[in-house]
Amino acid sequence: MQPSSELRVAAVQCPILWNEPEANLRYIEEQLRGQETADLLVFPETILTGFSATAADYADREGRQLEELSSLARRYGKAIAGSLLTALEGQLYNAFFLIDEEGQVQLQPKRHLFAPGGERGYVQPATERCIFSYRGWHILPLVCYDLRFPVWCRNVDKEYDLILVVANWPKPRRAVWQTLLRARAMENLCYVVGVNRVGTDPQGLIYTGDSALITPRGEVIAEAAAGAEEVVCGSLSYEPLSELRRKFPVWADADRFTLEL
């Protein structure tokens, strides 16, 4: 399938209600109902619960939350992405989801679990890396801490066009988040859309968001205001990406690595 010439993306920078999946589902529906221009709405990591060990008690072990998200995507004719805690083959994962307008679900578990947050105690890491497809665009899905690891993000032979990364990335490390979004775009010659939450969680962590849409040259298409609940939209154009790769083929000289999973 040929990529669509334009992909309209909305980064939904928002707070998350702590361990309240139903209320957060209602928030997602409100955003879908009010969005007229975007093809794809991207929400932060663990959008239905927030990020904590107690969130495992509210995980999607029966697949019902994914079913509801799929129903919302079909009802409003919009694709949605984010991450949630869900069970796959009997194991619990923090999984990135992308659900298209027809309700079709693609999942990628988080690979790098955040030990300081206790994540290793309640979810399992990914054992393979998937490349998603949406409207002909090839997409690398990343969940928060995955962004720090360039080997996992390596774009070999132009296998993807866009990185979508969703996060609960706190304020003390905001400069790292902002820097890595741009670095991953430039080193992999791809678009990057990073969506982080805002607000304060019950653990006392503050989140400033700093969500952004970045070009393969590291330029900002759109960026949310720090700390604000805000939806920022932008259109990603395929032709400039293709032309840049043709004129500046650094991808052909990239080092190759073997991942040990």
Score class of each variant (00 low, 15 high):
A11G: 08
Q13W: 03
C14H: 07
P15D: 12
L17S: 12
N24S: 07
Q31T: 07
R33L: 09
E36G: 03
D39S: 08
L41A: 09
P44E: 08
G50W: 03
A56S: 15
G63P: 01
R64L: 10
R64F: 07
R64C: 08
E68G: 02
L69V: 09
S70T: 05
A73S: 15
G77M: 00
S83E: 02
R111S: 09
G117S: 10
Q124N: 15
T127F: 11
H138V: 00
L142S: 07
V143C: 03
C144L: 06
Y145L: 08
F149S: 07
V156Q: 08
D157K: 12
K158L: 11
L164F: 10
V166I: 08
P172M: 01
R173V: 12
V176C: 08
T179Y: 12
R182Q: 14
A185R: 01
M186V: 12
L189M: 12
V192T: 08
V195S: 02
T200A: 13
G204H: 08
Y207C: 02
G209Q: 09
L213N: 07
T215C: 04
R217N: 14
E219V: 00
V220W: 09
E223Q: 15
C233I: 12
S237Y: 12
L241T: 01
R245L: 10
R245D: 06
P249T: 04
A252D: 13
R256C: 10
